[in-house]
C-alpha cells in the first residue's frame, strides 16, 4: 500500500525533482529557442535572447538550402530503419528457436552473441575500413546499414529472446494438439503475442542506430552521411552559426526524443540485456 502523502511533501518533491528536470532538459530547451532566432540574436545575452528579440524560421530554410539537410535526414532514416528491419529478419527466427526449442547450447550461444557486442569498435576499425575501401562501400548507405545491423544484432536477439520467453509454452502445445502446423503456429498463435515485444525492440534499435556515432563518422563522408556525421561539419565554423546549428540539431534529435518517450521501459531491458527489468 502506498502511504498517504501530505500535499506539502508532494509539492516539495515536485519542486526539487522539477528543478533537476529543468537543469537536465535546459540544453535541449535552449537550442529549441535558438533555432527560431536570427544569428545576430542567437549570440546575445540569454535574457535578451528570450525577451528582447523576435522569432523566425529563417535558420531552418537556410540549413536546408546551404547543405541539403534532408539528404542527410533521409540517410539517417534509411540507415536506421534499414538496419533494424534487416536485423529483425535475422533475429526473429534465431530468438524464436532459442526461446521455444532450447537446447543445451542455447545458453552458450546467447552468451557468445553478447560477447560480440563487447568488442570495442576501434579494435576492428582498420580491417573494416580497408574491406570497405576495397569493396567500394565507403560512403555508401548500404555498407553502413549492414554494419549497424551487425553491431546491434546481439541486442535485438537478446531483447526478442527475453520477450519470447515470456510467452507461455503451453499455448504452443495446445495449438499443436489442435493440429496446427508449424507455419500456422507461428502465424496465428505466436505472432500476435510477439508483436508488442517486437515493436519495442524495433523502437530501441532505431534509436541506437540513429545515434550511432563511431561507424557513421568513420565510414561516411558526404553522400551517405547521416545526421551524426553531418552535424560534425559544424565543429569548424566560419562566422555566425548558433541558430543554424540549433535548427539542424533540433530536427536531428526531435524524432528520437519522441520515440524515446515511448520506449523508456524497453530501453532498460534492452540495454541491460535483461539484467534489470
Amino acid at each position: 500500500m502506498a502511504r498517504a502523502v501530505s500535499r506539502r511533501t508532494r509539492l516539495t518533491n515536485t519542486a526539487v525533482a522539477g528543478a533537476l528536470g529543468f537543469l537536465m532538459f535546459f540544453p535541449i530547451l535552449w537550442i529549441l529557442v535558438l533555432a527560431f532566432k536570427t544569428e545576430e540574436d542567437a549570440i546575445r545575452a540569454p535574457l535578451e535572447v528570450l525577451f528582447g528579440s523576435g522569432w523566425t524560421m529563417e535558420s531552418f530554410t537556410t540549413v536546408q538550402e546551404r547543405s541539403d539537410y534532408f539528404k542527410h535526414f533521409s540517410n539517417s532514416v534509411v540507415i536506421s530503419l534499414g538496419s533494424t528491419l534487416l536485423g529483425l529478419l535475422v533475429a526473429v527466427p534465431a530468438a524464436w528457436s532459442m526461446a521455444f526449442v532450447p537446447s543445451k547450447h542455447t545458453r552458450n550461444v546467447l552468451m557468445w552473441m553478447l560477447s560480440t557486442k563487447m568488442l570495442p569498435p576501434v579494435g576492428v576499425l582498420v580491417p573494416i575500413y580497408l574491406i570497405f575501401r576495397d569493396l567500394d562501400l565507403l560512403d555508401s548507405r548500404f555498407g553502413l546499414t549492414v554494419v549497424l545491423m551487425l553491431i546491434n544484432l546481439p541486442i535485438i536477439i537478446w531483447m526478442l529472446y527475453t520477450y519470447f520467453r515470456e510467452i507461455p509454452g503451453e499455448i504452443l502445445e495446445a495449438a499443436r494438439m489442435d493440429g496446427a502446423t508449424l507455419r500456422e503456429e507461428i502465424l496465428y498463435v505466436l505472432t500476435p503475442m510477439a508483436i508488442p515485444g517486437i515493436a519495442s525492440t524495433v523502437l530501441l534499435n532505431i534509436i541506437l542506430a540513429w545515434n550511432e556515432a563511431f561507424w557513421t563518422i568513420n565510414l561516411t563522408a558526404s553522400n551517405a552521411a547521416p545526421l551524426t556525421q553531418f552535424i560534425t561539419s559544424y565543429s569548424s565554423p566560419e562566422g555566425l552559426f548558433y541558430a543554424k546549428l540549433s535548427a539542424a540539431s533540433v530536427m536531428a534529435i526531435a524524432p528520437i526524443l519522441i520515440m524515446g518517450w515511448f520506449s523508456q521501459k524497453q530501453l532498460v531491458r534492452g540495454l541491460t540485456f535483461g539484467a534489470v527489468k
Binding site: T14, A17, G18, L20, G21, F22, M24, F25, P27, I28, I207, W210, N211, A213, I217, L227, T228, Q229, I231, T232, S235, A252, I253, I256, L257, M259, G260, W261, Q264, L267
Partner: peptide
C-alpha cells in the same frame, strides 16, 4: 519530469 531528466540520453553525441 521523468522524461525531462531522461531526454539527454536520446541526443546524438555529436
Amino acid at each position: 519530469i521523468r522524461i525531462m531528466v531522461i531526454a539527454p540520453f536520446f541526443v546524438m553525441p555529436t
